[in-house]
């Protein structure tokens, strides 16, 4: 690593000016454009797969939200499902009690999850990785327990029934094939992705990376860590809440499963598969994860979680970086163009 010529050094051609070099980081690359064109193209291409694609888009958004705190701020969370669940229940309750327009519901649910995330963020400011693990896990458990106990509001273990979602913006009705659902979820994910992309390439985003890289030094050059962490954690909670709301709105059902520990673990696994810290990891990981889950569940329906555990163990044991580098080598130029600094 040390003596290797750095990848960021321009080869051959005249070195760019520092400003151009810095701004080039944020420039769109053609595989990114191709990625999104394909994603939207699937609306027309695979009409009978839209339900699955809808789930992938939502999982991708959820993993993207975890990537914001894990990949950019270095916060390990075992309870990201808390915000997913809050958004999901908020959307369900809104739809049940009169606010049936999905976009309004989506924004309000995101705000609700964001509020919870904002409050929860103060608990992760202090302490080490370990205390953060505990706090995030604890918060998720509290919400799971809340949803379970407040059964007159949430329906408890039976799930929230009687959700009726109206047409999007009063015009587009949800259909059984999931075409509207996929289009809706993908559009929301895309817009939120654009915002996230803007933010991670801003000075604020850079300061987060610095905090993750070396907390001590970041403090010595005057970066006050707490406000940055509160901000990104809140934003991630909004994203997770919106992902939850999308799932509620497109399936018209909310259950305790939304808050399960397994959901938090899913998001982690997605990021392990797709890689973290370059925004596309969540989306690419979500595709791989869902396809893998479908295949493995078809083989051994009840024991999917065995394979999930197996994949985690193997990935970590071999070394996430090393394995991913090997697997991704054929795609390395592509991934680099997508903005991943190191495979």
């Amino acid at each position: 690593m040390l003596s290797k010529p750095p990848s960021t050094r321009p080869l051959g051609a005249q070195a760019p000016s520092p400003a151009a070099f810095l701004q080039a980081r944020a420039a769109w690359r053609w595989p990114e454009i191709l990625f999104w064109i394909s994603a939207f193209g699937l609306i027309l291409l695979f009409p009978n797969r839209h339900l699955l694609l809808n789930e992938i888009a939502i999982l991708g958004l959820f993993a993207l939200s975890l990537d914001l705190i894990l990949g950019y701020a270095g916060i390990v969370s075992l309870g990201h499902a808390a915000f997913f669940g809050v958004g999901a229940y908020a959307a369900g309750l809104l739809a049940k009690h009169g606010v049936s327009e999905p976009v309004t519901g989506l924004l309000l649910s995101g705000a609700a999850a964001g509020l919870v995330g904002f409050l929860a963020s103060f608990m992760i400011l202090r302490g080490t990785d370990l205390t953060r693990l505990m706090v995030t896990l604890g918060v998720a458990l509290i919400f799971h327990e809340l949803a379970n106990r407040l059964d007159w509001i949430t329906g408890g273990a039976d799930g929230l029934l009687g959700i009726s979602v109206g047409p999007i913006l009063g015009r587009f009705d949800f259909d059984f094939a999931g075409t509207t659902a996929y289009t809706y979820s993908l559009t929301a994910t895309f817009l939120l992705f654009l915002l996230a992309r803007r933010i991670v390439h801003s000075p604020f985003g850079l300061s987060l990376k610095a905090l993750k890289d070396n907390h001590l030094r970041a403090a010595t050059i005057g970066i006050a860590p707490n406000r940055r962490i509160v901000a990104i954690y809140t934003l991630a909670a909004v994203y997770a809440g919106m992902a939850g709301a999308l799932l509620t709105q497109t399936t018209q059902f909310v259950s305790l499963e939304m808050l399960d520990f397994a959901r938090s673990a899913d998001a982690l696994l997605v990021l392990v598969i797709g890689g973290s810290g370059y925004l596309y990891g969540g989306l690419i990981g979500a595709i791989a994860f869902k396809l893998m889950k479908d295949t493995l569940s078809a083989m051994t329906p009840a024991y999917w979680i065995f394979w999930m555990g197996f994949i985690l163990v193997i990935l970590v044991l071999i070394g996430r970086d090393r394995l991913m580098a090997t697997l991704a080598r054929p795609f390395a130029p592509l991934l680099k163009l997508l903005g991943a600094r190191r495979p």
Partner: peptide, 26 residues
């Protein structure tokens, strides 16, 4: 795993938890 990051240790041991649950169930 001793020298790995806490994140790796967490992911690794969660994986073991899932495997043990499914294996016991089976």
């Amino acid at each position: 795993m001793y020298e790995r990051s806490h994140l790796d240790q967490v992911l690794f041991s969660i994986g073991l938890v899932f495997m043990s649950i499914a294996a016991t169930d089976y």
